[in-house]
Design a protein around this nucleic acid. Sequence first.
DNA 1: TCAAAAGTGTTTGCTATACACCCATGA
DNA 2: TCATGGGTGTATAGCAAACACTTTTGA
Lengths: 226, 226
Amino acid sequence: MSLQPAYCYVYPHPAVTTDVVVFTIRGQRLEILMIRRRSEPFRGSWALPGGFVDIDEDLEACALRELAEETGVRGVYLEQLYTFGAPGRDPRERVISVAYYALTRSDRLQMRASSDAAEVAWFPVSALPPLAFDHAHMIGFAHRRLTAKLDYSTIAFQFMPETFTLGELQRVYEALLGEGLDKRNFRKRILALDRVEPTGGLRRNGSHRPARTYRLKDPGRVEIIR
Amino acid sequence: MSLQPAYCYVYPHPAVTTDVVVFTIRGQRLEILMIRRRSEPFRGSWALPGGFVDIDEDLEACALRELAEETGVRGVYLEQLYTFGAPGRDPRERVISVAYYALTRSDRLQMRASSDAAEVAWFPVSALPPLAFDHAHMIGFAHRRLTAKLDYSTIAFQFMPETFTLGELQRVYEALLGEGLDKRNFRKRILALDRVEPTGGLRRNGSHRPARTYRLKDPGRVEIIR
DNA sequence: TCAAAAGTGTTTGCTATACACCCATGA
DNA sequence: TCATGGGTGTATAGCAAACACTTTTGA
């Protein structure tokens, strides 16, 4: 049994999809969540998770649903990135894609393959495979936005687990910026934001002095600073 | 003769529109370009210029075309703002709207009514009429983005005509920020950007000392500063 | 006792702000 | 000559960057 076209309009309508660029930090590297496509077009290529918007579904809900269905990833910080709509970006029909980006804690990942995606994997931003559609372009866009937001928001905290040390936080910033930071200035700046508080606990991690652990005062909230 | 539905799909497709928030400065006030709708829904209401994306048309091209068709305004600085897609935001069918915002020189306006719009008019941001759809929401979004960008880009130069005085530029900034600025500090900061140069000419304008006129070194270019 | 990361203040340069008077013109 | 906006410099405070040593632990 094959589906017959059943939804008709006086004027042609484009299809609308969402795609999501999910960032995490793993092993001090910035990585992106990708799926391998099981169907045409670009069958076998790596692509961003995403898919068609249901006719009564909010755009952000669509992004979250596709992400969960295709990769099992949930509970991320999501923000709209940009809408890509160049004619010809999808060979099947006119497809306009509303791109989102997301940040997640590397300890929260519950990845699984699904019916839509043959495989799910993380790739370092610096070593991406060839990608389907204009997804490489989207990732470039998302990466620039992320690094820009580092400077004037508390977005980087979204990468952190429940409790963390200031050293761990600094290593996240260093991975994102691609450069080393001065420890004293970094700690001064972070504590001045008044967004983290000590848990009172210590973390023992190797043969050296244990580190105080901190938690976010208001997890999930991303503030614009300055 | 009425049109019969002629474009059919296996799955339902939303309609896609663009809407444009055009800002200008007139009489030291920030104003927005609006049209009065000639057709349902919201017939007779004020709305942003905009309309349906042609099936092979780029999104930005659509925004520029609708703007020109409905208002006669051309040659503006355009930037994508956000995509609004809540189900129910249009009572006819599911409509996803890619919103743009634009800045234009108040001396460049060639407004005219057209078949789609009964009337075209400027409204001060501080005194908008009731608006169709979620357009008031879009304008709030655009206004916040504009004022945020003032701080870290040269976007305000897009409001200026070919030649202008530093006093005129300062009045534009003051209208946008809603507060007075120190003249000396303002001129120091603007000149330090190295984006304007004196034309060598003077502008006589009332019974006081004439002002030097300036031009943009690179008109159209908007730079991120800091 | 050694290696390794945690933790801690001060100095310095730069940038943003506050602030007041003379100039050139037309009425 | 008066009213009006044009044009100019300096002093100060606050913020960002540079910089080195002691502490605590496990091996």
